[in-house]
Design a protein around this nucleic acid. Structure first.
Lengths: 336, 336
DNA sequence: GCAAACACTTCAATCGTTTGAATTAACAAG
DNA sequence: CTTGTTAATTCAAACGATTGAAGTGTTTGC
C-alpha cells in the first residue's frame, strides 16, 4: 500500500540497509547514493513507518499529556506551550482529558504505556488518593513531569505556578487597599495549587496581623454555583465583608456577578481579586484584578524539562520550578 | 525491559502464538490455557506493545485531529466530544494545533501519516489555497472527516455548525426587534463557516426587503482589534446604525465593550448579536444574545462518522451533517 | 606483489506481535 | 489396525525499519 524502504531499495537496485542509512545520514554512505536515495524518497513521497522504526529503536516520538480538562483557559494554553516544544523536538502529542476522574486517568496511563510513549506530562485529577498508576510509569522508567496539579509522593520534576506567592500578593493588595474582612473562595485542598493559594492567603493575613477566620474560607471545588451560594450566605450574615480572593478567575467573575445581582457595589463595598488572569477578567464589569501566571510558559517549561530527560541531558529528580506571577490591578479593587 | 508475550510464553512453557491467541480470545485456545495466560498477564502487568501489534495488523488505534487553535471555547469543546468517542472505541487521539498556518498543517499531516494514524479529523486553517497535503491523505486511503472548517474540494464527510440558518436566525431577530441598519463583523470569507454566516446575514436582509449595503460588511479576520477599529470608524460616519451581527462571540463581546467605551447604549441605541454562545456571553454586560451551536456535539458526531469509516461500517462519501443551532436571546438585543 | 587500510555496501538478525499452515494428540468410525 | 476427524498447540514467516558484523572492491604502503 504505502511506500517502504524496500520499494526504494529495489527500484534503485540497492539494499534496504543502504537506503535506511542514506535517509538517516549515516556517514558510511557515499554522497552519490545518498542523493539518489533522498531524491527518489521525495519523488515517491516516502514516509518512514513510525511503528516499525519505533519497534526497533524503542522510541515512539510521542509523548502523552494528561489534563483534567481541555476546555479551560489554563490547560488549553498550557497545551499550546507543550505542543510548541514537542514540534521543535519532532515529537507528537497524545492528549488525554481525565475529566477529573481518577479512573479515567488510570485507564489513560495504561493505554499510553501500551502505546510506548517516550514521556508523560501530567496534571493530576483532583481527589488523588491511590496513585498506583503513576507508580507504574516510574517503575517502567518512563520520564515523567508533573505540572500545576502535582503530587509530592514521587521524586519527579514538577512545574508549578507561583501559587503561594501569587495568592500572598493578591491578598496583600486587598489589605493594602483597605480591606480587613477578606473571604477566600477556595479550591479543593487536596490539590497543591489550591492548597498553596490558601496558604498564601493565610500568610498574607498573618503578615499584616489580621486574624484568620476559618469561617471566611469556603471550599468551592472550582464550581461557580458554590461560589454564588457562599456569597449569598456570607453577605447575609456578615455585613462587614470588604474583600474576596478567589482561587481562580472563574470564581472571581462569578463573585462579581453575584455581588452585582445583590446590589453590592464592586469595588466600593467589596473588592474582588481572582487568580489566573484569564481573558474574562477584561470582559466582566468591573474588570477583575487578578494574578497573571502564564499557563503557556508552564506548559512550555514542563515540556522542556521532559525532553531534557528524554534526551538524557540530565535527570534532575524531584526538582521544582515555579513560574513567576504578577499582580494585574484592574477595576474590581481600589483603595477604600 | 517491559514484559512481552515471550516472557509469558516461557514462564508458562508454551509458545508465543498461543499466548497471543489466548489474550485475543481466539476460539482455538482451551479454556484452561486461556485462563492461565490471562492470569499471568495480569499478574505480570503485561501491556501489549502497540507498535509491534500495529506494525503487524496495520492498525495504530490512534486518530489524528487538526485544529487551528486548542485554546478556544469552540475547539476545546469539540475536542472533548472527539475524545469521548475515541475512548469508547479504545482509540487514542493525537491533537495538533495548526495555529492557522497552512505550513504547520502540512507538516502535521505528514507526520501523522508517518505515525500511521487510522483516521483524520480536520478543521482547516484559514486561508486555504493549496491543499495538496489533504490530497495525500485521500490518496493513502486514510479515512478523513472535516468538521467546522471544511473544504468542498474533497469528497469526504463533513460536519458543520448550522451557520447559514443560525446567522439567518440571528439577523432576523435583529430585524424583528426593529433594527434596520445592521452591520456584519465578518470572518475570513474563504472559510465556509464564515462565508455561510455572511450569506445567512444577507439572505435574512433580503427576506425582509432590506437592501444589502456592502459597506456594512466588515471582514475582521476573527481579530477583536479589527472589530474595535471598524466600530469606531462606522459609528463615526453612520449615526443611524442600530444593529451588529458578529461572526463569533469574541467579536460580539468586543463590539459591546467598544460601544460602551463610546458611550453608545446597548441595546437601546445598538443591538448586538454574536454567534457561538460561548460562556463569555453571560459575563459581558449586557449579556450577549447569541446563536448556540454545540461544539461538543460537532466533535462527537465528527468522531462517530470517522469511526464508522474506520470500522468499515459505511463509507458515505461527501455526506454533510449540519448540527442544529438555536437563538439565545439575552440583554444585548431588545425590541426598540 | 602482498598485506593492510579504507570506503562502501550487503547480510542477517532483531524489535514484539500476529496468523496461515503444519503438527501433534486424542479419539471415533469402519 | 488403519483412517478420518477434531481440538489444541506450535512453526515460521511476516510487518518495516535498524544495525553490528561480514563482505566487497579499491587504493595505499612497503
Amino acid at each position: 500500500m504505502s511506500i517502504t524502504i524496500k520499494d526504494i531499495a529495489s527500484t534503485l537496485g540497492i539494499s534496504p540497509s543502504t537506503v535506511s542509512r542514506a535517509l538517516n545520514g549515516h556517514p558510511d554512505i557515499s554522497e552519490k547514493t545518498r542523493k539518489s536515495v533522498k531524491d527518489l524518497a521525495k519523488k515517491m513521497n516516502y514516509q518512514v513507518n513510525q511503528m516499525a522504526s519505533g519497534l526497533r529503536t524503542k522510541r515512539s516520538f510521542t509523548i502523552g499529556v494528561l489534563v483534567p480538562k481541555i476546555a479551560s483557559h489554563f490547560f488549553s494554553s498550557a497545551l499550546s506551550g507543550i505542543q510548541e516544544v514537542a514540534v521543535a523536538n519532532n515529537y507528537q502529542v497524545l492528549i488525554c482529558q481525565t475529566n477529573e476522574s481518577q479512573n479515567q486517568e488510570r485507564k489513560y496511563v495504561k493505554s499510553l504505556l501500551s502505546a510506548k510513549v517516550d514521556g508523560f506530562l501530567i496534571s493530576l485529577a483532583k481527589g488523588q488518593k491511590t496513585i498506583t498508576h503513576i507508580k507504574a510509569i516510574v517503575d517502567n522508567k518512563v520520564p515523567l513531569v508533573f505540572f500545576d496539579r502535582i503530587s509530592d509522593s514521587f521524586n519527579v520534576p514538577k512545574i508549578e505556578a507561583e501559587d503561594f506567592k501569587g495568592a500572598h500578593r493578591a491578598v496583600t493588595h486587598l489589605i493594602d487597599t483597605g480591606c480587613r474582612k477578606i473571604v477566600h473562595l477556595a479550591g479543593p485542598d487536596n490539590l497543591t495549587a489550591s492548597y498553596n493559594r490558601m496558604q498564601g492567603y493565610k500568610q498574607a493575613l498573618k503578615d499584616k496581623n489580621i486574624p484568620i477566620d476559618e469561617k471566611l474560607i469556603i471550599p468551592c471545588d472550582f464550581d461557580p454555583e458554590n461560589a454564588k451560594k457562599a456569597i449569598h450566605r456570607l453577605m447575609g450574615q456578615n455585613g462587614d465583608i470588604d474583600g474576596i480572593f478567589t482561587v481562580n478567575d472563574e470564581l472571581g467573575v462569578e463573585a462579581i456577578l453575584t455581588l452585582k445581582s445583590m446590589n453590592i457595589k464592586v469595588p466600593d463595598q467589596v473588592s474582588v481579586v481572582g487568580f489566573g488572569d484569564f481573558p474574562i477578567c477584561r470582559i466582566v464589569e468591573p474588570n477583575l484584578t487578578s494574578i497573571r501566571h502564564n499557563p503557556y510558559q508552564i506548559g512550555l517549561e514542563a515540556a522542556q524539562c521532559l525532553f531534557s530527560q528524554i534526551n538524557h541531558k540530565n535527570i534532575d529528580g524531584g526538582s521544582r520550578r515555579v513560574i513567576p506571577s504578577e499582580l494585574v490591578v484592574r477595576d474590581s479593587s481600589k483603595t477604600k
